[in-house]
Amino acid sequence: MSSAVSLTAIPGVPDIRNGDDLSAILGDCLDRAGMPLKRGDILCVAQKVFSKAEGCIIPLASVTPSAEALKYAEELNKDPRKVEIVLRESTRVVRAFRRPDQNEGTMICEHRLGFISANAAVDESNFGEEDAAMVLPPDPDASCARLQRDLSHRFDAEIGVVMTDTFGRPWRLGQVNVAIGLSKVPATIREQGNTDAWGRPLQVTEPALADEIAAASGLVVRKNGKTPAVLLRGLDWQPADSRGADILRKKQEDMFR
Protein backbone atom coordinates (compact mmCIF):
# COMPACT_ATOMS: atom_id res chain seq x y z
CA MET A 1 0.00 0.00 0.00
CA SER A 2 1.04 3.63 -0.37
CA SER A 3 3.00 5.50 2.27
CA ALA A 4 1.31 8.80 1.44
CA VAL A 5 -1.92 9.91 -0.23
CA SER A 6 -3.56 13.28 -0.81
CA LEU A 7 -7.23 14.25 -0.49
CA THR A 8 -8.53 17.37 -2.23
CA ALA A 9 -12.09 18.64 -2.29
CA ILE A 10 -12.90 19.68 -5.86
CA PRO A 11 -13.85 23.37 -5.81
CA GLY A 12 -16.60 25.13 -7.70
CA VAL A 13 -19.12 22.31 -8.06
CA PRO A 14 -22.48 24.01 -8.78
CA ASP A 15 -25.85 22.95 -7.45
CA ILE A 16 -26.82 19.87 -9.40
CA ARG A 17 -30.25 19.60 -11.02
CA ASN A 18 -32.26 16.80 -12.55
CA GLY A 19 -30.81 15.85 -15.92
CA ASP A 20 -27.38 17.42 -15.40
CA ASP A 21 -24.36 15.71 -16.94
CA LEU A 22 -22.18 14.96 -13.91
CA SER A 23 -19.23 13.88 -16.04
CA ALA A 24 -19.15 17.18 -17.90
CA ILE A 25 -19.71 19.27 -14.77
CA LEU A 26 -17.05 17.55 -12.66
CA GLY A 27 -14.62 17.43 -15.59
CA ASP A 28 -15.01 21.18 -16.11
CA CYS A 29 -14.49 21.81 -12.37
CA LEU A 30 -11.30 19.75 -12.43
CA ASP A 31 -10.00 21.65 -15.46
CA ARG A 32 -10.78 25.05 -13.94
CA ALA A 33 -9.01 24.05 -10.73
CA GLY A 34 -5.93 22.84 -12.62
CA MET A 35 -6.52 19.28 -11.38
CA PRO A 36 -6.52 17.04 -14.47
CA LEU A 37 -7.07 13.42 -13.55
CA LYS A 38 -4.12 11.02 -13.67
CA ARG A 39 -3.93 7.25 -13.89
CA GLY A 40 -4.73 5.72 -10.52
CA ASP A 41 -6.74 8.68 -9.18
CA ILE A 42 -9.94 7.88 -7.31
CA LEU A 43 -12.90 10.23 -7.36
CA CYS A 44 -15.21 10.08 -4.34
CA VAL A 45 -18.60 11.61 -5.06
CA ALA A 46 -21.46 12.10 -2.62
CA GLN A 47 -24.65 10.18 -3.30
CA LYS A 48 -26.69 13.38 -3.19
CA VAL A 49 -25.32 14.74 -6.45
CA PHE A 50 -26.05 11.47 -8.26
CA SER A 51 -29.57 11.40 -6.81
CA LYS A 52 -30.21 15.00 -7.83
CA ALA A 53 -28.90 14.47 -11.36
CA GLU A 54 -31.00 11.31 -11.73
CA GLY A 55 -34.20 12.86 -10.39
CA CYS A 56 -34.38 10.79 -7.20
CA ILE A 57 -36.33 13.43 -5.29
CA ILE A 58 -39.91 12.71 -4.28
CA PRO A 59 -42.33 15.55 -3.39
CA LEU A 60 -44.12 14.57 -0.20
CA ALA A 61 -47.39 15.88 -1.65
CA SER A 62 -47.26 13.08 -4.24
CA VAL A 63 -47.15 10.31 -1.61
CA THR A 64 -50.20 8.49 -0.25
CA PRO A 65 -49.32 6.64 2.97
CA SER A 66 -50.26 2.98 3.32
CA ALA A 67 -51.85 1.50 6.44
CA GLU A 68 -48.42 0.22 7.49
CA ALA A 69 -46.92 3.68 7.07
CA LEU A 70 -49.70 5.24 9.14
CA LYS A 71 -49.06 2.72 11.92
CA TYR A 72 -45.32 3.41 12.07
CA ALA A 73 -45.91 7.15 11.79
CA GLU A 74 -48.15 7.15 14.85
CA GLU A 75 -45.73 5.05 16.88
CA LEU A 76 -42.68 7.11 15.91
CA ASN A 77 -44.18 10.59 15.56
CA LYS A 78 -42.99 10.76 11.94
CA ASP A 79 -44.54 12.20 8.80
CA PRO A 80 -46.50 9.24 7.34
CA ARG A 81 -45.54 10.28 3.82
CA LYS A 82 -41.85 10.00 4.66
CA VAL A 83 -42.48 6.66 6.35
CA GLU A 84 -44.18 5.44 3.18
CA ILE A 85 -41.11 6.38 1.13
CA VAL A 86 -38.89 4.56 3.64
CA LEU A 87 -41.03 1.44 3.34
CA ARG A 88 -40.93 1.57 -0.46
CA GLU A 89 -37.13 1.76 -0.36
CA SER A 90 -36.84 -1.14 2.11
CA THR A 91 -37.04 -4.91 1.93
CA ARG A 92 -37.67 -5.12 5.69
CA VAL A 93 -37.77 -3.02 8.84
CA VAL A 94 -35.07 -4.36 11.16
CA ARG A 95 -36.21 -2.28 14.13
CA ALA A 96 -38.30 0.81 14.77
CA PHE A 97 -38.05 2.71 18.05
CA ARG A 98 -38.56 6.07 19.70
CA ARG A 99 -36.71 6.88 22.91
CA PRO A 100 -38.41 9.11 25.52
CA ASP A 101 -35.99 11.94 24.73
CA GLN A 102 -36.65 11.77 20.98
CA ASN A 103 -39.16 14.00 19.23
CA GLU A 104 -39.13 11.64 16.25
CA GLY A 105 -38.28 7.96 16.21
CA THR A 106 -35.98 5.99 13.94
CA MET A 107 -36.50 3.11 11.54
CA ILE A 108 -33.53 0.82 10.97
CA CYS A 109 -34.16 -0.82 7.61
CA GLU A 110 -32.63 -3.13 5.08
CA HIS A 111 -32.51 -1.07 1.92
CA ARG A 112 -33.47 -2.66 -1.39
CA LEU A 113 -29.73 -2.57 -2.26
CA GLY A 114 -28.90 -4.61 0.85
CA PHE A 115 -27.47 -1.91 3.10
CA ILE A 116 -28.69 -1.64 6.70
CA SER A 117 -29.25 2.01 7.52
CA ALA A 118 -31.45 4.47 9.36
CA ASN A 119 -34.64 5.31 7.45
CA ALA A 120 -33.43 3.34 4.40
CA ALA A 121 -31.10 6.28 3.58
CA VAL A 122 -34.13 8.50 2.81
CA ASP A 123 -33.03 12.07 3.41
CA GLU A 124 -34.73 15.43 3.81
CA SER A 125 -31.69 17.66 4.38
CA ASN A 126 -29.01 19.42 2.40
CA PHE A 127 -30.40 19.16 -1.11
CA GLY A 128 -32.17 22.50 -1.45
CA GLU A 129 -35.84 21.51 -1.65
CA GLU A 130 -38.64 21.79 0.87
CA ASP A 131 -41.39 19.22 1.48
CA ALA A 132 -39.52 16.54 -0.44
CA ALA A 133 -37.41 13.48 0.29
CA MET A 134 -34.37 12.16 -1.52
CA VAL A 135 -33.72 8.47 -2.14
CA LEU A 136 -30.64 6.61 -3.37
CA PRO A 137 -30.06 6.16 -7.10
CA PRO A 138 -31.62 2.96 -8.47
CA ASP A 139 -28.23 1.50 -9.42
CA PRO A 140 -25.24 3.21 -7.74
CA ASP A 141 -22.73 0.94 -9.47
CA ALA A 142 -24.08 1.83 -12.91
CA SER A 143 -23.97 5.52 -12.00
CA CYS A 144 -20.33 5.18 -10.93
CA ALA A 145 -19.47 3.21 -14.07
CA ARG A 146 -20.83 5.96 -16.35
CA LEU A 147 -18.86 8.63 -14.52
CA GLN A 148 -15.71 6.49 -14.49
CA ARG A 149 -15.95 5.74 -18.20
CA ASP A 150 -16.60 9.34 -19.24
CA LEU A 151 -13.89 10.92 -17.07
CA SER A 152 -11.32 8.24 -17.94
CA HIS A 153 -11.96 9.00 -21.62
CA ARG A 154 -11.89 12.77 -21.14
CA PHE A 155 -8.56 12.77 -19.27
CA ASP A 156 -7.07 9.70 -21.01
CA ALA A 157 -6.39 8.10 -17.64
CA GLU A 158 -7.92 5.07 -15.97
CA ILE A 159 -9.42 6.15 -12.68
CA GLY A 160 -11.73 4.74 -10.03
CA VAL A 161 -15.00 6.12 -8.71
CA VAL A 162 -16.62 5.63 -5.31
CA MET A 163 -20.14 6.82 -4.48
CA THR A 164 -20.33 7.74 -0.80
CA ASP A 165 -23.11 8.15 1.73
CA THR A 166 -23.11 8.88 5.44
CA PHE A 167 -24.03 5.99 7.71
CA GLY A 168 -24.02 5.38 11.44
CA ARG A 169 -22.34 2.28 12.91
CA PRO A 170 -23.71 -0.22 15.44
CA TRP A 171 -22.37 0.42 18.95
CA ARG A 172 -20.36 3.48 17.88
CA LEU A 173 -21.28 7.15 18.02
CA GLY A 174 -21.35 9.48 15.04
CA GLN A 175 -21.43 8.86 11.32
CA VAL A 176 -18.83 8.17 8.62
CA ASN A 177 -18.87 8.08 4.85
CA VAL A 178 -19.16 4.59 3.40
CA ALA A 179 -19.09 3.25 -0.16
CA ILE A 180 -22.47 2.40 -1.69
CA GLY A 181 -21.38 2.28 -5.33
CA LEU A 182 -18.10 1.40 -7.03
CA SER A 183 -16.41 1.42 -10.39
CA LYS A 184 -12.97 -0.22 -10.74
CA VAL A 185 -12.13 0.29 -7.04
CA PRO A 186 -11.84 -3.00 -5.09
CA ALA A 187 -14.41 -3.36 -2.33
CA THR A 188 -11.93 -5.16 -0.06
CA ILE A 189 -8.31 -6.32 -0.16
CA ARG A 190 -7.94 -9.99 0.73
CA GLU A 191 -4.85 -10.51 2.86
CA GLN A 192 -5.59 -14.14 3.71
CA GLY A 193 -2.54 -16.25 2.88
CA ASN A 194 -0.11 -13.35 3.28
CA THR A 195 2.03 -12.94 6.40
CA ASP A 196 2.34 -10.23 9.03
CA ALA A 197 5.57 -8.40 9.93
CA TRP A 198 6.69 -11.40 12.00
CA GLY A 199 6.00 -13.98 9.33
CA ARG A 200 2.78 -15.30 10.83
CA PRO A 201 0.08 -16.22 8.29
CA LEU A 202 -2.93 -13.94 8.02
CA GLN A 203 -6.17 -15.87 8.17
CA VAL A 204 -9.02 -13.33 8.37
CA THR A 205 -7.49 -9.93 7.55
CA GLU A 206 -9.45 -8.21 4.77
CA PRO A 207 -9.28 -4.39 4.82
CA ALA A 208 -12.47 -2.70 3.62
CA LEU A 209 -10.66 -0.58 1.05
CA ALA A 210 -13.72 1.08 -0.47
CA ASP A 211 -15.08 2.11 2.92
CA GLU A 212 -11.65 3.33 4.03
CA ILE A 213 -11.47 5.53 0.93
CA ALA A 214 -15.02 6.81 1.47
CA ALA A 215 -14.39 7.58 5.14
CA ALA A 216 -11.15 9.41 4.31
CA SER A 217 -12.98 11.61 1.80
CA GLY A 218 -15.18 12.87 4.61
CA LEU A 219 -12.17 14.54 6.22
CA VAL A 220 -12.19 17.29 3.57
CA VAL A 221 -15.95 17.61 3.06
CA ARG A 222 -18.23 19.90 5.03
CA LYS A 223 -22.01 19.57 5.02
CA ASN A 224 -22.40 23.29 4.34
CA GLY A 225 -19.38 23.61 2.06
CA LYS A 226 -20.89 22.39 -1.22
CA THR A 227 -17.90 20.14 -1.85
CA PRO A 228 -19.55 16.86 -2.90
CA ALA A 229 -16.55 15.48 -4.81
CA VAL A 230 -13.09 14.60 -3.52
CA LEU A 231 -9.98 13.59 -5.44
CA LEU A 232 -7.82 10.94 -3.79
CA ARG A 233 -4.35 10.63 -5.28
CA GLY A 234 -1.32 8.49 -4.49
CA LEU A 235 -2.98 5.25 -3.46
CA ASP A 236 -1.45 2.03 -4.77
CA TRP A 237 -4.36 -0.10 -6.00
CA GLN A 238 -5.33 -2.39 -8.83
CA PRO A 239 -8.58 -2.01 -10.83
CA ALA A 240 -11.21 -4.66 -10.17
CA ASP A 241 -14.67 -5.59 -11.36
CA SER A 242 -16.37 -4.57 -8.13
CA ARG A 243 -19.81 -3.62 -6.86
CA GLY A 244 -21.07 -1.84 -3.79
CA ALA A 245 -22.77 -5.07 -2.72
CA ASP A 246 -19.37 -6.80 -2.54
CA ILE A 247 -18.78 -5.17 0.83
CA LEU A 248 -21.99 -6.53 2.36
CA ARG A 249 -21.71 -9.48 4.71
CA LYS A 250 -23.60 -12.56 3.59
CA LYS A 251 -26.85 -13.06 5.49
CA GLN A 252 -25.81 -16.55 6.58
CA GLU A 253 -22.82 -14.93 8.33
CA ASP A 254 -25.01 -12.48 10.28
CA MET A 255 -24.70 -13.41 13.95
CA PHE A 256 -27.29 -10.84 15.07
CA ARG A 257 -30.33 -11.87 13.03
Rank of each mutant, 00 (worst) to 15 (best):
G114T: 02
N119F: 05
S2F: 08
L173Y: 15
I247L: 10
V185K: 02
V176F: 15
Q203Y: 15
C29I: 08
A132H: 06
W237T: 07
V204F: 15
V45F: 02
E191G: 09
K184R: 15
S51E: 05
P100D: 14
G225K: 06
N224K: 08
L235W: 09
K78E: 12
A215M: 10
G181F: 00
R39Y: 11
E75W: 06
K38L: 09
T91V: 10
D31C: 14
L7D: 07
G234N: 04
I10K: 04
N77E: 13
G168V: 06
P138R: 10
T64K: 11
A179R: 04
H153P: 04
S23T: 13
M107W: 03
L113P: 03
C44Y: 04
L70Q: 11
I42A: 02
Q148I: 02
G19W: 14
V13R: 00
P65R: 00
V185T: 02
T188W: 10
D123W: 03
C56E: 15
N224T: 07
A69T: 01
V45T: 09
A67D: 11
S66R: 04
V86N: 01
S2M: 07
M35K: 08
M1A: 12
A61T: 12
P207D: 14
R172I: 06
T188K: 15
E104K: 10
G225A: 07
A214S: 11
S242V: 00
A145L: 07
R249N: 12
G199E: 14
E129D: 09
Y72W: 07
D141S: 00
R243N: 05
R95V: 08
D139R: 02
L113H: 12
D20W: 03
T106G: 04
N194L: 11
S2T: 08
D31Q: 15
F155E: 09
G244M: 01
N177C: 06
G160N: 04
N224I: 05
Y72A: 02
I25G: 05
A145I: 04
I116S: 09
L219K: 13
A214L: 02
G168F: 13
E54A: 09
K38Q: 14
F115T: 03
D15Y: 06
V135M: 03
A61H: 15
Q47R: 15
D101P: 08
R154E: 14
D236L: 08
G234F: 00
V93S: 06
I180A: 00
A120M: 05
P11I: 02
Q47G: 08
W171P: 06
A229P: 01
F167Q: 09
T64G: 09
